[in-house]
Structures are given as structure tokens and as C-alpha cells.
Write a protein that binds this DNA or RNA. Structure first.
Lengths: 231, 231
DNA sequence: GATTGACCGAAAGTGCGAATCCGGTCAACA
DNA sequence: TGTTGACCGGATTCGCACTTTCGGTCAATC
């Protein structure tokens, strides 16, 4: 069985991520990555069929790690699934991952035509499930019009933040998260304290959904399909 | 007194706006504008010293017209000054002005280095006054952290809307405005009905501030400074 | 079998003179 | 006095040959 070292694959992705942040997709040569790791260029192609798949794997790993961080936070405190904690929490976690930030800001300089492909599909599915679960358990108000759009639009501005305007770029991230928390709680959550039993149940449901997403990401990372026989 | 026709100036700005939308700042030649109006190129320079000032005048007129529309809406119904009506109202009015939309989306293709200059300064000042007045009269909650940032970030996503993602691009504009209204009311306004007396008073204050802004814009449009004597 | 780097060809970059475009001016004109 | 468009020159674009870069392969090597 041809099983290229996973540890080596990770070192390759480490180098790729570092170089990607520094010089952008187009300026990073596969050779650069190989030399940074101290291996031959051909070896990189033992792991992924081409450059694009390599970087897709990199972004998958980033997504997996990020999702895992959220998952851990929920495990540490199930009340984290409440929208006004979950959303600002994800906001903070995401902002500590420059590659993910660059990706969802659509940084065209950094990712030259690096299509997100199925990556967003799964996230969208999860978000839909999140919303549905929340509404069903009464953790999000039923009277919000067009909930999907409402959440998306309300949140977007926080992520794009000082992409334009620079006006608030030195407001501390935690303070921005606090503002987001206020917004989500007042506009999307029902008044009063949530029922601990419901929280525990929803927490369990979402945790397993997140687990599934993480392992789905992880599976995609090292799939290089070495046995590609022609004909 | 050298007073080039204001009506002609307006026709020039009309043509400039049309061409700007169609081909972008760089591709619009002053000659194109002149020919579209049916006048000589030199005549354009009787109105503005150079191309950049012409387009600044165009954007000023857009801003003036937009602001005036908001003003008229307030005059027609003073309750329009309530945040949950004012902000979605401005949202709708703005979205009907493609040039303004392009400008605040920072459409670099369309405006090549066309600095906003003092244009944003005044809008920021007005926004600050709006917020301060609202808070002082109890029309916006006092417990919102970092109000300026909160309003800005909450609103931004609605304006940027489907610049990214395209996911919600065929949600009707009015529905988006309704979502925004819900957001603003629940997150920024105090519960209960506002006092009609307060509404009338604030309406008067804001109206005169808007009037001032409109005429400030209008003054800038035709200022071409023909008597520029050297040293 | 795993690994490598010389090698290939396509594609992108470079240098540079020629051609073109266009903002801005102003003498001529109405 | 108001208007114009030919004209100027700086900047941009174009054409084109040449060079370099780099993704991907594979015979040779370990």
C-alpha cells in the first residue's frame, strides 16, 4: 500500500501555508515548498496530484482545525452553543487564522482562482442545520424574517470589518466580539434564560454534527488517489 | 461674471454619470462626455478645472440628491427619524443609486483613485450627530457597547450584500430592508413606543442638519474657481 | 519501492521602439 | 464673450522577439 508519510504531508502543508501568507498563491512554486521542507519536488507530487489539490488540502486542514477548536469550546462549556456565544466565539477563533480570514475575504491576490468548491457546501449545510436546530428548540426567535439572510448579513460586516474604511481597525477584537454578542442576543434570541436541558441536548446534537464535519475535512486532506490507472 | 450655464453643467454630469457606469473612470474620456452632450471639449473645462474635479462634482450631486431624498421622507413622516425606519430607508434609497453604491463598495475598477476626500468627512460628522442626538433623546438604548462601531458593522453586511457569495442576491430589496429594520429595532432601540413630542423635536433637528448637508454638497458642485490668477 | 532533480513545454514575464490615447491648453472663431 | 477643436506632450498601450519561470513527468538513483 502506498502510504506517504502523513507527518511529512503535514510538514509540506505547514511550509505551503507559511509561503502562501508571505507571497500569495501565484508566487509560491511547488519547488519552494519542497526546498523549505528539505525534500525533492517530485516527493510533493507523491502526496497530491497537482498544486491546486495541495492548497485545497491546506485549506481543508485549516477548516478542520478551526472547526475542531469550536468543537472543543462547546465541549468545555455546552452553553457555548447559544447564538450570542457561538457566533462571537467563532468570530474570534476565525480571526486568529489568517489563511481562513484571507479566504473568506475573497482575497483574490492570495488565492488565484482557488475555488472553494465543496468546502463551502458543507459549511452551508452545517449553518442550515444550526439554524434549524436553534429555531426548533426555541433558542432563536421564530419572528425573525428570513433568518438565513438575517444572520448572514448581520454577521458579514463584522468579518469584513476594516477591509474597507479602516475606521475601527484598532478597536480590540474582543470588544468587537462583545458588540456582536449584544447584536445576536437582542435581535435573534428570545428573552429570558434558556432551559439547561435544552442547551445540553442541542449541544450534543451540534457536537456530533461538528465531529462529522471535522472528520469529513480530515478525510479530504490526504486523499491523493495514487492508483490512477489509465483506461 | 463668468457663469457657465448650470443647466449645461447638469447635462455634462448626466452624461458623465452614464458613461462612468458603463465604462468606468479610466475609460471615460472628457471628449466622450463632451460629444455625448453635443459640445466641445474645451467647454467642459469652463465648468471644472480638470477631470477629477468633474467627477467629484458628479458624486457630490449624487450625494446631495440622495440626502435630499432622505430629507423629503422625513418631512413626509417625522417618525422616519426612528433608527429602525431611518436606516432601512436610507438603505433602500441608496440602493437605487448605482453610482453611490459603486462608490461605497469601493469599486476600484470604477473609480480609479478617485479619493472621496471631504465627502466622507461630512457624512461621518452627520452620522456622529445622528447617534448623539438619538442617544440623548432616548431613541437609542444607552447600553449598546461601542455604538458607532456597532451600527457600522451591523449595517455594513447589508450594503455589501451579494458582493461576495451571491447567495441572497435574489432576495427582494424590500425584504432585506425589513430584516435590517428588525435588527435595528431589536438591538438598538429601547422597548415601547417613542414619545411623539420627542420624535417631532428630533425630526426638526435632523432635518435642519440634513438641509445644511445638502446645500453644502450643492455648493461644491459648480465651484470651478475660474479666477485662478498665478502668483 | 521510495525518492529525486534534470528535463520538457506551455505560459508568463521582460525590454523596447512604435503607435495610440487623452488630459489639458489656447489661438482662432462666432 | 462664450465656444471650440486642433494641437501638445506625457503617459499608456501595443507588437514582438527574447528570456525566465514553473507545473508536472519520469528515467535514473538509492
Amino acid at each position: 500500500m502506498s502510504h506517504p508519510n502523513r507527518e511529512r504531508a503535514d510538514r509540506i502543508l505547514d511550509a505551503a501555508g507559511e509561503l502562501l501568507l508571505r507571497m500569495g498563491y501565484r508566487k509560491v512554486a511547488v519547488d519552494d515548498i519542497a526546498r523549505a521542507v528539505g525534500i525533492g519536488k517530485g516527493t510533493v507530487y507523491l502526496h497530491w496530484r497537482n498544486k491546486e489539490l495541495l492548497f485545497q488540502a491546506l485549506m481543508m486542514r485549516e477548516s478542520a482545525d478551526l472547526t475542531d477548536e469550536v468543537l472543543q469550546a462547546i465541549r468545555a462549556d455546552p452553553a457555548m452553543i447559544l447564538p450570542h456565544r457561538m457566533i462571537p466565539g467563532s468570530f474570534l477563533i476565525t480571526h486568529r487564522r489568517p489563511l481562513v480570514m484571507a479566504m473568506l475575504r475573497g482575497n483574490a491576490e492570495m488565492f488565484g482562482s482557488l475555488g472553494d468548491l465543496a468546502l463551502h457546501k458543507q459549511q452551508d449545510a452545517l449553518r442550515a442545520q444550526f439554524e434549524e436546530t436553534m429555531v426548533r428548540h426555541g433558542l432563536i426567535r421564530a419572528d425573525v424574517p428570513n433568518l438565513s439572510y438575517a444572520l448572514s448579513a448581520s454577521t458579514l460586516g463584522f468579518y469584513l470589518g476594516d477591509t474597507l474604511s479602516h475606521e475601527f481597525e484598532d478597536v480590540p477584537l474582543e470588544e468587537k466580539a462583545a458588540v456582536l454578542a449584544h447584536l445576536i442576543r437582542t435581535a435573534f434570541e428570545p428573552p429570558g434564560e434558556p432551559d439547561p436541558g435544552v442547551v445540553a441536548e442541542v449541544s450534543a446534537v451540534l457536537s456530533s454534527a461538528l465531529e462529522e464535519l471535522v472528520s469529513s475535512y480530515r478525510n479530504g486532506i490526504y486523499a491523493h488517489d495514487p492508483t490512477r490507472a489509465p483506461g
